[in-house]
Simulated assay, not measured.
Amino acid sequence: MNLNQQSALVLFSGGQDSATCLAWALEKFSCVETVGFDYRQRHAIELQCRGTVREAILAAFPEWAAALGEDHLVDLSVLGLLSETALTRNVEIQITANNLPSTFVPGRNLLFMTAAACIAYRRGIKHIVGGMCETDFSGYPDCRDDTIKSLQATLNLGMDTRFVLHTPLMWIDKAQTWDLAASIGGKPLVDLIIEHTHTCYLGDRSHRHVWGWGCGACPACEIRAKGFDRFTTADLGLRRDL
């Protein structure tokens, strides 16, 4: 199958990581589409943030307007029905018996990438971009580099094509993710991510912090807050002028 070498599909949740990946893709490819997933997540507010972030990017960076293409929203409610996790049920966030946090949704990224590949196949898109990271993360096995490499091989075999799966955040921590956004879009992009993206597992957008909106106590908020603090700490040599 012929795939457009300059096209990309970004797994876009509306969060910090996926917004950074979207900006990364818009700098790199001439045609970029986005895909989000409704799996009946507890923090479904992120689905509303997706459109807001896309609109804010177009307003702040009109030079990306020609590259930003269609948005796709996929109903994966079956994932919510199959899983018993703190992201799909109103239960406490804690470490489970297998040493994984109860926020781990088994198979989530595997399904996300597979669904994205189905869309990419139909749309003739070669590059698929995800925000998976195994540096600053909660230990999810489907965020590991080995998982993504194996999945790329499986998808290409199963669809007889040559997708390329990109994970630009895989080997950087959260502070470096903030720094990557700054290197791509400067203060406007950092401010956009702070104000419009959503990371909080509890879906809290009633508390505003220097790093953005959220409860401030869940694992996602803690990782984001600590990364922002390190990003803005002068002795780390990061972009402290922002």
Rank of each mutant, 00 (worst) to 15 (best):
I184D: 06
A225I: 00
A153K: 14
V190Q: 02
I194Y: 03
L192S: 10
F228E: 00
T232P: 00
L165D: 10
M170K: 13
W178G: 00
H166P: 09
G216C: 06
N156D: 10
I193R: 07
H196R: 15
S183F: 03
A220P: 06
L151A: 12
I223F: 00
A220L: 02
W178E: 02
A234C: 01
H209D: 06
A182M: 04
F163D: 10
V210C: 01
K226H: 04
A175V: 07
I184G: 05
T177V: 12
C221E: 08
K149G: 13
I148S: 12
D145F: 05
G214A: 07
H196P: 05
M159F: 14
R230Q: 07
C221T: 09
A225K: 15
L192T: 12
S150E: 07
K187W: 00
K187L: 09
L169C: 09
T177W: 00
W178V: 04
C221V: 11
P141W: 11
T199E: 08
G227F: 02
L157F: 14
G185R: 13
V164W: 08
E222F: 01
P219A: 08
D146E: 15
L169V: 13
G216W: 05
I184C: 11
D142M: 09
D179G: 06
S206T: 15
H166I: 11
T167E: 12
E222Y: 01
D191H: 08
F228S: 01
L151I: 14
T177I: 14
I184Y: 04
L151C: 06
E195R: 15
L202I: 11
S206M: 06
G214E: 09
A182T: 08
W213A: 07
I184V: 10
A182W: 13
T197G: 11
C143N: 15
R230Y: 02
D235V: 08
V210I: 11
C215F: 02
D235F: 07
F228C: 04
D179W: 08
H196Q: 15
L157W: 12
T197E: 06
E222V: 10
T167N: 13
G186V: 06
W211R: 05
D145W: 11
H209W: 15
G216H: 09
T161R: 10
K149T: 10
A220F: 00
D145Y: 12
H166N: 07
G185Q: 11
D179H: 13
H198Y: 05
I223T: 11
A234F: 05
K149N: 14
A181V: 07
C200F: 01
V190M: 00
D191P: 08
L157R: 15
L189R: 07
Q152M: 09
R224N: 07
A234H: 13
D146F: 10
M159P: 06
L155M: 10
V190L: 01
L192K: 13
A217I: 13
G185D: 09
D145R: 15
D179C: 03
I193D: 03
F231N: 01
C218F: 12
R208G: 02
H196A: 07
K187V: 05
G214I: 05
C218E: 11
Y201P: 09
H207C: 07
R205V: 15
